[in-house]
Simulated scan of single mutants.
Amino acid sequence: MTEHLYILGHPIAHSKSPVMYNAVYERAGLPWHYGTADLATRAEAEAFLATRDFLSINITTPYKPEAFAAADVRAASASLAHGANVLVNKGGALIAYNTDGQGCVAYLEGAGVSFAGKSVVVCGTGPTALSILHAVAQAGPADVLLLGRDKERAHRVMRTYADELGAMIGRTVDMPAFKEGHLSFAEVYRQVDFRFGSYDTSRQAIAGADIIIDATPLGMNEGDGAPFDVALLRADQTVFDVVYGHGETALAAAARAMGCTFFDGAGMLVGQAVVTVGILRDITETAALDIPEDELFAIMADAAGFDL
């Protein structure tokens, strides 16, 4: 029986997810088909989610909060991010995950970026930014600074994240790190210095950061600027932009001109897809998906035409 899987969002014409996932399912010999659900309104997205007529969906901007709300069960990754980018249908119940952060950090570490002891800036206050914030924190930085346009909003988002992380630690056995050498949830809570600010009030911190991650959608529309003053960039910084497939963003152009080590979101897309395939393998108990992670990464990157 053919199982149907989708990417839900708007706009998604640029998305490489269908060719990536379908390449894996073909490689595994599975009768699964991955398509698109490009829905322009929140009402349409909610109606699509309500049908539950899918095995799994990936969710991108702007419907991660709606996917989170539709879930019956939420993994810690989705709960801390307040948004889901993966929903798996298990017997009619929707299980929510957020793999953005794990995929982002796995890709950057695989490319030689080390977070241990570093000062990291994360731009954005939405689910993608929060997912990345948590995964970065597990990678062992000295401090993580969450930035938004409004300092008070960044403060509220950071405080909520810290409170919910603390509550998770208080009511469960400590959740271990995904990777050897990373921090557990309790270690993140106790050891990492979390800070917040706005782009205008944190200029010194931006200039002094070792790693800057832009987890905003800026760059998806023509004429978008960078989230902060790019004159603050230094050549020895690592800069990552989650946007891909929309041409060179303002941040990408500035980072490359400054001589920064720069990465766009293509590698993160593949990295989170590798995590998603692992979730599907475990939830559906599909042995055909038991493919080594490095092989999965190569299959999907090649299908997407990414040189990673």
Rank of each mutant, 00 (worst) to 15 (best):
T2I: 15
T2W: 14
L8W: 05
L8D: 02
I12S: 05
M20Y: 08
N22D: 13
P31S: 12
W32G: 01
W32N: 00
Y34R: 07
G35W: 08
R42F: 12
L49H: 04
F54W: 08
S56G: 14
N58I: 06
T61L: 15
K64A: 05
P65L: 05
A70V: 12
A71M: 09
A81L: 09
N85Y: 09
V88P: 03
N89W: 07
K90W: 11
L94I: 10
L94F: 12
I95S: 10
Y97M: 00
N98S: 09
G103T: 07
A106R: 14
Y107N: 14
G110E: 02
V113C: 00
A116I: 05
G126P: 09
A129D: 06
L133I: 11
H134C: 00
A139D: 01
A142F: 13
D143A: 14
V144P: 06
V144G: 09
R153S: 13
R153V: 11
R153D: 12
A154Y: 04
A154V: 07
Y161K: 10
M168K: 08
I169T: 13
I169H: 02
R171A: 10
T172S: 15
T172N: 15
D174I: 00
M175A: 14
M175S: 05
F178E: 14
K179R: 14
L183T: 02
S184L: 00
Y189M: 07
V192L: 09
D193R: 15
F194R: 06
R195Q: 15
G197K: 12
D200H: 12
T201Q: 10
S202Q: 13
Q204N: 13
A205Q: 15
A209H: 05
D210Y: 03
I211Y: 03
D214L: 01
L218F: 11
G225I: 01
A226T: 01
V230G: 04
A231N: 11
R234G: 04
R234C: 07
D236T: 09
V239L: 01
D241S: 07
V242N: 03
V243T: 07
H246G: 03
H246S: 01
T249I: 05
A252Q: 13
A253R: 14
A254T: 12
T261S: 14
F263N: 01
L269S: 04
Q272E: 08
R281Q: 14
A287C: 07
E293H: 03
F297H: 12
I299R: 10
I299P: 11
A301L: 09
D302P: 08
L308T: 13
